[in-house]
């Protein structure tokens, strides 16, 4: 006699039924997530109704989807949230700004992730600061989402195979219309970096920091400003040894997307800065660039650590 596994009883469809997408979107448009290894996950579309390709990565944070989606580090990546409910508190206003003029609730000016994969998209939100639902925001930002996906199984897949290329394809759309793209082969930093320098923070600050924008998050500027720093933010390929940056007290290299070896000119610039023995620190990609400038090697992890629970002891 066949043994019926509990897993068999909970089919993907019944899981999807649990997701909010069913009810809210009038059992809306179906969509599928295709991975480069051939596996396909069926679900429902929310947000922008378009197909998209990118690198599929998972993120383990339990709050903060609006910050995650607007983080430039996720440029051209399709984010899988391991936390099953996304959208609970809606999306706040993008016009609420801090004392120095940067949006309070987001990490950059737009959504950088290519797509969003969740188990249950919560269209009905509740928060006094919310101005729109997550789906509406994604639609406005032309970013597609897909819900009703068994994200636990998907995450196990990614953990086993490593980060994979994938695409979200709408129902009736031809898969070949969205070829797989490997974001790590292009210079993503150039895509997300600011175009021209700008200044942030109090005028009468104790320190003046030069920030290399490789995909900077607004909160990094805020943290520096809280510590009495005035920050001059410059594009990734700016000549940081120019005359006007002479009086800067130190160099900060931001986080960012993609492979650090794609930006040799930035590495060269940092190497020169290091040679002059001036203060410097980097976060994430900035740290990797710093390592490369110091003569170390970098390699890509099988699957990166994306989430909020990395201990720092």
């Amino acid at each position: 006699m066949d043994v019926i596994q509990v897993d068999d009883l909970v089919s993907e469809d019944s899981l999807a039924q649990l997701g909010g997408g069913v009810e809210h979107h009038g059992r809306g448009r179906r969509a599928r997530l295709e991975l480069a290894d051939g596996s396909v996950f069926e679900g429902w579309s929310f947000g922008a109704a378009r197909s998209v390709a990118g690198e599929v990565v998972f993120q383990t944070g339990m709050v903060g989807y609006e910050q995650t989606l607007s983080d430039p580090s996720y440029c051209q990546q399709i984010i899988v949230f391991t936390y099953p409910l996304v959208g609970n508190y809606g999306v706040p206003s993008s016009t609420d700004c801090d004392a120095y003029g940067l949006p309070l609730h987001f990490e950059s000016s737009r959504v950088y992730a290519a797509g969003l994969v969740v188990l249950s998209y919560e269209d009905a939100y509740s928060h006094w600061l919310a101005r729109q639902s997550l789906g509406d925001w994604l639609e406005q930002q032309h970013v597609p989402g897909i819900c009703g996906i068994d994200t636990r199984r998907l995450t196990q897949c990614i953990r086993e195979h490593g980060s994979m290329l994938g695409r979200i394809v709408l129902e009736h759309a031809d898969s070949n219309s969205v070829p797989f793209v490997d974001p790590n082969r292009c210079n993503l930093v150039a895509e997300v970096s600011c175009q021209r320098p700008y200044v942030y923070g109090p005028q009468d600050a104790r320190f003046h920091v030069l920030a290399l924008d490789c995909g900077l998050k607004y909160n990094q500027l805020r943290c520096l400003a809280q510590r009495q720093c005035r920050i001059t933010v410059v594009p990734w390929n700016e000549d940081i040894h120019a005359e006007q940056f002479r009086e800067c007290d130190g160099l900060f290299i931001s986080n960012g997307p993609g492979d650090p070896t794609m930006v040799p000119e930035t590495i060269r610039n940092i190497r020169e800065w290091l040679a002059r023995d001036r203060p410097v620190f980097g976060i994430c990609l900035g740290h990797q660039l710093l390592a490369l400038a110091a003569g170390a090697q970098t390699y890509k992890l099988k699957y990166g650590n994306r989430g909020h629970n990395q201990p720092c002891c």
Binding site: G61, M62, G64, N88, Y89, S126, H127
Partner: peptide
């Protein structure tokens, strides 16, 4: 658990 209605900033 975890918290359902708190934003990242509140949490």
């Amino acid at each position: 658990a975890p918290t359902m209605t708190l934003t990242d900033k509140e949490y």
